[in-house]
Design a protein around this nucleic acid. Structure first.
Lengths: 199, 199
DNA sequence: TAGCGTGATGTCACCTGGTGACATCGGGGG
DNA sequence: CCCCCGATGTCACCAGGTGACATCACGCTA
C-alpha cells in the first residue's frame, strides 16, 4: 500500500526494487486470504510482480517467507548477552534475553496476531516455527556455555527460558490480554519459580 | 528379522503381510546407509516389495515412517495421568509422565541412538520430531487442565517438563553416559529446581 | 463349485515445490 | 562507447504427494 507507492513510483531500473519486501507482503496477504496450502508460490510471485523462480532466489522454500529476519534474532541474543556482567547467573542472562526478544517480537500486537493465526492454522508452518525456536534456544545455549556455564546447566536454562517464552507469548496473544509482552514474561517466570519450588 | 520370518513363511495372500513393518525397516536401513534426502520413496517401497503409492497409503509422507507409533504415546500419557491421585501436584504428574515416556523411549539405547542419528542429520526430520514433541506437550497440558489445573499453570508445567525431557534425553544419548534414562531425568529435574530457586 | 463382494495393491495421470543451466537486459565503471 | 555484472526470466527436469480407476486373490454364500 503506502510503502508500495514509494517503491513503485521511484522505480528506475529494469525491475522494481524491493522484490523481497513485496514477496513478503504478498505472501502474508494471500496466506491470510486463502490459507497457506491454497496459495501457490506462483500466486505470490505474480502478486509481487516476479516469477516463481525469483521467489526461490530470495527464500529457501515457501514457508521461509514468513520467517524472514529470524536470523537477526540470534545476533540480538549474542549482543544482549555480551552486555551482561560476568557475575550474572544463568537465569539472569536468560531473563535478559527473553526481555530483548520480547521487544522485537512484541512491538506490533496486531501484526503478530495475524501472522500467528496463519502459522497456527498450518502444520507445516508450525513445524518451521518450532525449529526456528529450537535454533534460537541452541544459540542461547551456546552463549551460555561461552560464559563458562556447564553443558547441562546451559541447555537446561535455555530450554526452560524458551518454555517460559512460549507460554507467555501464547498468553499475550489472548484477546483478553492487554499487558506488555515483557510483563507477561516476567510474571510467567515468577510462576515457574513457584512451580519448581513447590514440594 | 525374527518377527519377519514368521509373517513371511505364513504369507498366504496375494501379497506378503506386514507391509507397514517392512516399510519401516527398509526406511530406517536406507536412511542410515545413504541419508534421508538421498533416499527416494520409490527406493524404500522397492526394498519393501511394494510401490511408492502403497508407501503413501501407510504413511502420510516420507518423514512419517520414522515416527510411526508416536500416537500411542499420547494414550500412554492419558493412562499414566489417570492413575495419579487427585492430590498430586502438577509437577508430580509431569514427573510421572516423564518417567513413563522414558520407559518407552529409553529401553533400547542402541536403536534409539541410530534413529536419533538419522533425525539429527536432517532438518526436515528435526522439524517433524519437534512437532511430535509439541503434540505430546499439548496432550499433557490438556490432561493437566482436566485435573483442574489452571491454563497457564498447566501449559507451563507441561512445557517445562518437555524441556527437562529434551535435556535429559540428549544427555542420555551421550557416549559417556550409561545411566538409565529415568535416572537422568530425575537428576535433570533436580537441577531445574536448583536453577529456578537460585536468586 | 460357481459366483460375488471386498480390501489391499498396482497403474496412470497430474499438480506443486524446488533446482540447475543458460539466456537476457539494464546500469555503472573503464 | 563498450563491457562487465547482477538481478531476473525461461526452460527442462526431479521428487513428493494425490485422485481415479483397474486388478486380483481371498473368503463367503447359494
Amino acid at each position: 500500500m503506502s510503502p508500495d507507492d514509494l517503491t513503485y513510483t521511484r522505480g528506475m531500473g529494469r525491475w522494481e526494487p524491493g522484490a523481497r519486501e513485496r514477496l513478503r507482503e504478498a505472501a502474508l496477504e494471500l496466506f491470510t486470504e486463502r490459507g497457506f496450502e491454497q496459495t501457490m508460490v506462483a500466486d505470490i510471485a505474480q502478486r509481487a510482480g516476479v516469477t516463481a523462480r525469483t521467489f526461490f532466489r530470495y527464500f529457501a522454500d515457501k514457508r521461509e517467507v514468513l520467517f524472514d529476519g529470524s536470523a537477526d534474532l540470534a545476533k540480538q541474543v549474542q549482543n544482549v548477552v555480551e552486555t551482561m556482567p560476568p557475575t550474572a547467573s544463568a537465569l539472569d542472562v536468560v531473563a535478559a534475553v527473553l526481555d530483548a526478544v520480547a521487544q522485537l517480537a512484541g512491538d506490533d500486537r496486531d501484526r503478530a496476531r495475524a501472522r500467528q493465526a496463519v502459522i497456527t492454522a498450518n502444520t507445516d508452518l508450525r513445524e518451521r516455527e518450532l525449529i526456528k525456536q529450537a535454533a534460537l534456544t541452541a544459540a542461547l545455549t551456546e552463549v551460555l556455555r561461552q560464559r563458562g556455564i556447564g553443558n547441562i546447566e546451559a541447555s537446561l536454562a535455555a530450554e526452560t527460558g524458551s518454555a517460559v517464552f512460549r507460554v507467555a507469548f501464547n498468553q499475550w496473544g489472548d484477546a483478553t490480554e492487554n499487558r506488555d509482552l515483557r510483563d507477561v514474561i516476567r510474571e510467567t517466570l515468577t510462576r515457574l519459580r513457584i512451580l519448581a519450588a513447590a514440594e
